[in-house]
């Protein structure tokens, strides 16, 4: 733009603070909002479906969407208002476990200070679910609801500890490279 002199280095120095100190929280909040919407959709599917002709089509659409990622077997799902949730017990546990940890993180540590734990904890938390799935499919045990619930929550709850730090760092890096390239963030400073 004519008449405006922009010291790009200065902008980078000045806004690096904003990008790496404030933005991680925005990214975290966005992630939290998206996961919350996802979990609400799981619960909304039966409530809408139970609404009859008025909200039924919306419920069917949600069921249709979730059917791509879950078997949705009625007998393997929790029920609300006489209808099954959008996904089965195991999937629900994973998603709600994921959401619970996301909600808990800011009460324990600032999201941008969260560090990825040792990888062995991830395998340790996933192992019970894998054992439950395999032993059920081999006919060794019947995989009761409680087993699916507990192992699912455990698996879902551990995942944010590995995903959130990488995600916040990645978004920060992408934003930095965007304004270094003179994109949106450089224009914002003018």
């Amino acid at each position: 733009m004519a008449g405006i002199i922009v010291d790009k280095d200065y902008i980078c120095r000045d806004y690096a603070t904003e990008i790496f100190m404030i933005s991680p929280n925005r990214t975290y909040n966005t992630l939290l909002a998206l996961v919350t919407v996802w979990c609400i959709a799981i619960v909304a599917a039966p409530l809408l479906a139970a609404g009859g002709e008025v909200s039924g089509p919306a419920g069917s659409l949600l069921y249709e969407g979730f059917s791509r990622i879950c078997h949705q077997i009625d007998a393997r799902s929790f029920h609300i208002a006489g209808e099954k949730l959008g996904v089965c017990v195991r999937c629900s546990s994973i998603y709600f476990g994921f959401l619970a940890t996301l909600i808990a993180i800011p009460f324990i540590v600032s999201p941008n200070r969260l560090r990825t734990p040792s990888i062995q904890w991830l395998f340790l938390a996933l192992a019970p679910m894998i054992v439950d799935v395999l032993s059920y499919n081999l006919g060794i045990q019947s995989s009761p609801v409680m087993a699916r619930l507990v192992t699912g929550i455990l698996a879902g709850a551990i995942l944010p500890l590995y995903i959130v730090p990488s995600l916040l760092e990645a978004v920060g890096q992408i934003k930095m490279s965007l304004y270094k390239a003179g994109g949106f963030y450089a224009r914002k400073t003018q």
């Binding site: 991830l122 590995y162 995600l167 990645a170």
Partner: peptide
């Protein structure tokens, strides 16, 4: 349409998990 919405989201999460691993 469903695949184009779902797969990139979970693919991205997989990529980040890969980075963590």
């Amino acid at each position: 349409l469903f695949s184009v919405i779902i797969l990139p989201i979970f693919g991205m999460l997989g990529g980040l998990l890969g980075f963590a691993i």
